[in-house]
Amino acid sequence: MVACGCKCETTEQAQLIEQLDRIIDEYRGQPRGLIQVLHKAQELVGYCPKWVQVRVAEGLGVSLQEVYGVVTFYALFSLIPKGRHKISVCAGTACYVKGTKMVVKAIRQHLGIKPGQTTEDSRFSLETVRCIGACGLAPAMIIGKDVHGRLEPEQIPEILEQYQ
């Protein structure tokens, strides 16, 4: 068992730590790799809980305070678990004038969650994000890695159905 400071007892968690260490190894002792390591760590764990931050801080040789500072500064890093499918509704100018509000409302009605929340079954989490650069297809949103454009509120249930 790797000593990580948390109460991980299952093999699954131990494996996760091992994988995390491999990510850290690439930049061990190099503070400049912090953001890159956090990207990969979040991809692996799903979010950046304290134990991840502690391990990254020790591995890269920066203080936990600095890691926490970076995690909370950048919008892409999250301190709380996200759903299996992350819905990011674009709130850029073009999308805003073409109906971001309607899209968010339709998702809210369908899933019962507000931006910043995750459904109880952890299937979806919802957030509004800065311009995703798909302005030609406004209003747009990203689910997972798929961009959906030219949205109409009535299409929302059908689109969400594709993600289980």
């Binding site: 503070p31 790799g33 912090l34 890159q36 990207h39 500064f73 919008a75 892409l76 800065r130």
Partner: peptide
């Protein structure tokens, strides 16, 4: 290539440099 992490201010040149160095932008 360095990937950003979602902070608009990093488009500002000196903030961008800080971000490449692994710090808050």
């Amino acid at each position: 290539i360095k990937a950003g992490a979602g902070a608009f201010v990093c488009g500002e040149e000196t903030a961008l440099l800080n971000s490449i160095e692994g710090q808050r932008g």
